[in-house]
Design a protein around this nucleic acid. Sequence first.
DNA 1: TCCTCTAAAAATATACGATATATAATCTGT
DNA 2: ACAGATTATATATCGTATATTTTTAGAGGA
Lengths: 250, 250
Amino acid sequence: MMADKNPNDGSGETGEQLPLMSGRLHHAVAQRLATQVVNGSYPAGHVFPAEVEHAELLGVSRSVLREAFRMLTAKGLVSSRPKAGTRVNERRMWNLLDPDVLSWQIQCGASDEFLRDLFELRLVVEPQAAEMAALRRDERQLLDMANALEAMERYTLTSPKGRAADIRFHELLMEATRNEMLQALSNSISTAIASTTTIKHAKKDSPRDPMPEHYALYAQIAEQNPAKARKAMITLIELAHADTQVALRR
Amino acid sequence: MMADKNPNDGSGETGEQLPLMSGRLHHAVAQRLATQVVNGSYPAGHVFPAEVEHAELLGVSRSVLREAFRMLTAKGLVSSRPKAGTRVNERRMWNLLDPDVLSWQIQCGASDEFLRDLFELRLVVEPQAAEMAALRRDERQLLDMANALEAMERYTLTSPKGRAADIRFHELLMEATRNEMLQALSNSISTAIASTTTIKHAKKDSPRDPMPEHYALYAQIAEQNPAKARKAMITLIELAHADTQVALRR
DNA sequence: TCCTCTAAAAATATACGATATATAATCTGT
DNA sequence: ACAGATTATATATCGTATATTTTTAGAGGA
């Protein structure tokens, strides 16, 4: 982008390739590096080439490379010190709940343990959240949730609109808990899982209809019945988990 | 730091001041800006001055300012586009669970709702985590937990060593859940709360002895009794919450 | 000979500055 | 209301200087 004296046309001098330049360059570089860190190409402790050399290798300016590394640093993936260079942090230093880190992990072929952990976390957080939502939701939120479900049913999860409605429903549910951090947590998870949903429904074989459990959950939120809302949420998550496993298994 | 032709001596041209230069400059700038974003000095929608002007205002180079903004962007605090400038995002875009964002919020005088949300989240996550830990812990973890508690009792929470032991105990507990994301979540929260603990125990008036509930929790983990471990954890969190409230109330 | 401490050196990220270009908002004329 | 020109801005590159940390070398002592 922009000052293209030595343009990035998708092929760096040594055969390295960026995803063909969409959006900001530093973002593309960050994504590329992050992906390789997350998928283990660069294991913990790995030291990257020196800035000048590395920038040349990638075919980008040093500033761009530095800004890319700043982003990774902000997410705990790497750290850098003069003389020592920039190195990959141990996994326990990563911000695993960061939306980007989450989506990178999924892009890099989510491992079975990753998916297990993710759904386990959902099972910890969201049933409790459903309880809170049942107790604290107001009429406006309830109405919006109904609308979201209607849209979800009309467009189905095979279309982007339908998936957006699904996400919207979960967002509203979390908003109803009136706990900002719970919202942040659950939204990270949902959007991450949503990207797997795309895969899930990409397959031609018609997947199970997800509406019944959604309506069941909605009904209990409407009834302001926390215990039943919790159970409905557990059911919903377990079905989603099963679907995802089946879909990714092939 | 470093190329100091127009050095940052703690007083920018227009009276702006950085926290007197510790560590990396872009980090200091990022911290300064983030603090002001988080505490509401720059409300959502606020547009920062243009890069050149802003850099001059802060008395730093453009690269430094840009890298600082990259970090804030990575944490969802701001976003920037050509011509439109760099602006503060709405709160729901922020990565509220990011360790830095969390600690910035605490530094900027955690509001009552913030603290309420935070402990509510703990009450959602950690009792369940205690259950898992009770079921999955191994002997090594149990031994380390015992050692941590011993150190915590010996040094007490008034000393850094004692607080480190407290954190270590919680880390071990989360490690025992064998769920990386649960670890990440709980560690973010613990370290954030730990910084308030410093405040809590800075006051001279001797605070309540926190050891009994810690030992009670440990005992149930050792017994591999998930139900009782859960209850013990709930007790622990509620006591900690009460202590924190009392301490910050003055 | 071996060890410890200190000082020099080297490697590297960090920081500054000038300049060019792409991008998106705004204005302008149809 | 729409298409094109204008403009403000972030984006991107390059060159250079400096601080920081690690490594190395040397001096002194046991």
